[in-house]
Design a protein around this nucleic acid. Structure first.
Length: 204
DNA sequence: ATCGCGATGCACT
DNA sequence: GTGCATCGCGATA
């Protein structure tokens, strides 16, 4: 597939809008081993100052969060346990916000993805989680600070996402009120979404 | 220097 | 559903 990066201008929109508009876009990573790409099918918004689940909560400014204080459209990678997670910095300069990419649907370079993730994996397990997709695509913490609008790690036009759903974010139980914010977005019915829609019961 | 912990994934019950 | 590996970061001293 032959794709060009989106313009830097694309990233200049409110974080919740960006999180939705990233669905269906193509995430591309070029490495010496080859190119992999995948359509973004699941995102989460983290809105700095007032969001207890965000690393930049209360405008906490450290070496790690520094890139979030800059202009939108840059790469925020972060190491969680043994895994690397990738975010798109959003919000105007000075506003430390970001969108976590939680899952993609493989497009190009599936052979390489299997090589990196293990030949025995089922196809959907290649990229159906934030730590899985970075491993499958060779996204590493050294990508921190790079622009998302030029190679080797960039976002391109993809395909229409169809219908979208939203719900609470995953894995942030110790974040008080923030854990209930419906700031997770995914493409309805897509098999690569990391968790099925929270099945709502009457007791809710 | 050291201590606690987490935006996870995987094996296992 | 539960348990845990494993390590960089941030806080504290």
């Amino acid at each position: 597939m032959n794709s060009r990066p989106l313009n830097q201008q694309f990233f200049d929109q409110p974080t919740l809008e960006l999180a939705k508009n990233l669905l269906g876009k193509l995430l591309v990573k070029e490495t010496e081993e080859g190119i992999t790409s995948g359509w973004i099918v699941e995102t989460e918004a983290y809105i700095g100052p007032g969001d207890r689940a965000a690393h930049s909560y209360g405008n906490r400014r450290t070496k790690r969060t520094e890139v979030m204080f800059g202009p939108p459209g840059f790469v925020y990678t972060y190491v969680m346990h043994t895994h690397c997670l990738v975010n798109v910095v959003s919000g105007e300069e000075g506003n430390p916000e970001a969108v976590l990419i939680r899952a993609v649907e493989p497009c190009d370079g599936m052979d390489l993805m299997y090589q990196r993730r293990g030949q025995d994996k089922r196809e959907k397990d290649l990229t159906n989680g934030p730590g899985k997709l970075t491993k499958a695509m060779g996204i590493v913490k050294e990508d921190y600070g790079r622009p998302f609008f030029e190679p080797p790690l960039y976002i391109a036009e993809g395909k229409p996402p169809g219908s979208m759903e939203e719900g609470p974010r995953i894995g942030i139980d110790n974040s008080g009120e923030a854990k209930n914010y419906p700031w997770r977005f995914w493409i309805k019915g897509n098999p690569f979404v990391s968790r099925a829609p929270s099945s709502r019961k009457k007791s809710d």
